[in-house]
Structures are given as C-alpha cells and as structure tokens.
Design a protein around this nucleic acid. Structure first.
Lengths: 232, 232
DNA sequence: TTGGGTAAAAGTCAAAATGACACTAAGATG
DNA sequence: CATCTTAGTGTCATTTTGACTTTTACCCAA
C-alpha cells in the first residue's frame, strides 16, 4: 500500500495498463472486381512482436473517453473519421503476451469501426500502415487474430439484424450496391428480388427519384437511408 | 513521461484505474408468488456515494483474469458461483463520477452473471448486501442504474436467441417452469402450446421419462438440458 | 365413486414470412 | 433492330408463426 518506486525507465505499477485498440473495416474491390472486407494494420516497431502487424491502438489517455481514443486510433492510422463506431470487447487474459511479466500486463478495450468504401480508397497507406483482406491475414501480434475474428462475427451479426450496410456506401446508392455489401460481408449470394422485398419491407431506405445512368442496362433507382432507420 | 511522484496516500498515476463489477441476476418469487428478476447490491461505506447502493466490484488484481475477478465479486457478495458469466461492457466515460478529479478516474469492465433460483434463495444477505427487484431499483452510485438497464437488455436479448433460461432452474424442470422463466425475464405471457412447440423444435432440452407428482393436474414431464445446446 | 377443476400435451388452422423462380422493362451495344 | 444485361415485378409452394381447440391425466370435494 506504500509508495511504489519506479525504475528509471518505467513506473512500476500494481495495476494493469489500459489500452484501446480499434478494428477498422471497409470494403474494397479485389482484383476480380468484387468487394471484400479489408482492414488496416500497423507494423510494430518495438518488442514484443517487433515487425509483426497489429491492430492500431495505444494507451488510453487519462483525459479521453474510450470512444474518443478509438476514434483517435482511426484518425491516426487512416486519416479518416468513423461512419460507425462500437465497443467490441475488453481483452485482458493474463497470457495475452506470452513471456512478458505481470508488470507489462495490458488490458485492451477494443472498438470496431466502419469507414466508407469511397473514403477508404483515399486513406493513408505507408511502410507501416497497410490494408489487408480480413479473410487472409498474416500472424498478428498478441491475440489480435482472435480479436479480428471476433469483430468479424459482430459485423456479420449486426448487418443481419441491424441497418448499417449503407454506411459502407455513399449517400446515394442502388439496391444492387447495397446487396453487394451484404454479399461481401456475409460471403454469400442473395436473390435480387427477395433482397428488394426485404429492404423495402424494412423501410430503412427510400427512393430519391433519381436514377443511375451509364449502366449497360435498365437504369436503377438511387436510394438513400431514411432518417428513422439510421442504425440499431 | 518522467517518473510520476506519488502523494503520501496514493500513487499518482497518469493512467485510469481499472475495476471489474458484476451484475448478478436471479429470479425470485414476489409476494404474489410469480417470479421476478432480482439482483444483489452492496452498500458503499465510503465517499463518493457513501451509503448508496452499488454493484459489487472492485479493482482488478494484477494477477487475475477479468472473468476471475467477476467470479470473485460474485462469490464475495453472495457466496455463490455463476451458472453463467459473460462480459457486458466497459464503462469509462470521463463523467462517471461527477466532481472527482481525473486522478480518480475509473474504467469499469462489467460482467453479468446468472445464479440459480434455488441457490440464490440461500445466498448471503446482510446490512450491506441486499437483493432488489431489477425493475424497482433505488438511485445507485455512479452510473450503475444505466449499467443495470444495459445488463437487463442483454439478458432479455440473450434469452430470446440463446438457450440459457434453464440456468435459472434446477437440473430437472418442467416446460411450465421453463416458460415461467421466459415470462419473468421478458415480462410477457407466452402460449403454452406454442412455447412447447418452439422448445421441442430447438432440441435443447430432452425429456427424462420422469414426471413431477403432486400437482393438482396431469403430472408434467421432467426435462433436462441437452449436452449439445448448453448455451450460445 | 363420481363429477368438476386444472394444467399437460397434442392437434388444428389461417396468416405471415421465406425461398426459388419466372416474367416484363428499359437501358446499352453492335 | 436484335441481343445482352440487370432492374423491377409477380407467382407459388413451403415453412413459420400466432391464436385457438381438444383430449389426457391427475387432484379434490361432494
């Protein structure tokens, strides 16, 4: 209970350290042109797991909210703001970083975010920040592979019983584009007719009256998200 | 970035403190005999919020996992072990404890737990630990009213698309008892026939062949939970 | 011993939701 | 103008859901 003495390098602490990390999802066209889920990772520049890829994150500042820290992760790695941001889970097992001692223990509160397909195309990429396909990740630092899988599960679940698919898209979109989002995230094929019926029944999108020109077929209606069904 | 100097009383820290709290649910018969959701609270013995009721919890020990800490909360307040335990959410707003300064900032990782109706009847109760109806709580310390509401939402959701209702019950139970759990938690009436059809279709319970005697009507079959559909 | 009360358990039925699929519309392309 | 392609509409059988009826098997009181 007395005053703990720090080492020269680091304050010795009897409490775990607290960090916030963020899983950032977007959709990008793969070489064949179909959309796939992608996320940015940062290369670690120090031990442990030096030179391995990891989720963007860092210590929680004493002055910032959890979600603010998550937004900061997002901004610092991609230069973007979130279209959607939600807390995912707090990971705090004792064995998250094998070999390290208890004083280095870190509890990570992880958020997940969506960024628009259009915005993400203009996002920062560099030596130390690169985008990966969510279904084809390298071995990540710490337990970050597990975390990404967990976030993917949540994304797929949310998409099914919530209305956030349009957040990947620009303000105006066709039902085909919306369907493509579902197909990319859920990794399955949807019947266009039935999909239309479902979306119209939900009332979360409304036709704008405008049509998208320049297709090689009948011009599709452009829709926008309704105010009511923003999300949840 | 230098070595922080502590006061005589407390180590001044540039990181938020980390605590684990647990919302513990059970079902108890109310005066009229029907089951209602109840939870134990502890009376705070020091400021802030001295003498107000609060969720059981405390600082996370450097040597224990998050879920272990939650189990410890449960054991220390009720003397019981959890039938079910799941992380709920990490609460970390800057204004959780109005009036306190940043050095006292606490991020709480909250778990929620189920304990059996039978076990809970024998749980500890004292001056400083009492059970309350979930739908009739006093003003709790910190943001704990919000947390309980959040946990109730989660419980109701989980019950609907997951199979944990039987965790409130003893090993053997009738379908009427199982239905009573749903009705108490979701606060609605269910058609007995349709409920039976639903439960049988899910295959999460199996008849034991035994029947419950002593009722004033046709003796109901006793069921148990199947291994396969334990939960999730 | 029998008739009434009660909830268990099984069964019925119409409405709604779902999945598979066919058909027509309206543009582009050659 | 014939053809290709996807938009958009329509059909239909199957499954699921909610409301309800009927029959079963016990207790209890007359």
């Amino acid at each position: 209970m007395g005053l703990a003495m720090g080492s020269a390098q680091q304050l010795t602490n009897d409490a775990p350290n607290l960090a916030v990390s963020t899983v950032i999802f977007t959709l990008r066209p793969d070489p064949s042109g179909s959309l796939k889920v992608a996320l940015p990772l940062v290369k670690r520049i120090r031990a442990p797991f030096q030179n391995q890829w990891a989720l963007p994150g860092g210590p929680l500042q004493i002055t910032e909210d959890l979600s603010t820290a998550a937004s900061r992760n997002l901004l610092e790695t991609t230069g973007l703001g979130p279209r959607y941001l939600e807390q995912l889970y707090a990971f705090g097992s004792l064995d998250r970083s094998p070999g390290s001692n208890l004083a280095d223990r870190v509890v990570s509160i992880v958020y997940w975010a969506l960024v628009g397909t259009d915005e993400a195309a203009a996002a920062i990429e560099s030596e130390n920040v690169q985008w990966f396909w969510a279904d084809d990740l390298p071995n990540l630092a710490f337990d970050h592979n597990i975390i990404v899988d967990y976030a993917l599960d949540r994304l797929r679940n949310k998409l099914a019983y919530s209305q956030l698919a349009h957040l990947f898209l620009p303000e105006l979109f066709t039902l085909a584009q919306l369907r493509e989002v579902y197909e990319a995230v859920l990794n399955l094929q949807l019947d266009p007719g039935n999909f239309r019926r479902m979306v119209e029944a939900e009332g979360t999108v409304e036709p704008t009256g405008e049509r998208l020109a320049g297709t090689r077929h009948r011009p599709p209606q452009l829709y926008r998200a309704t105010k009511s069904g923003e999300n949840k």
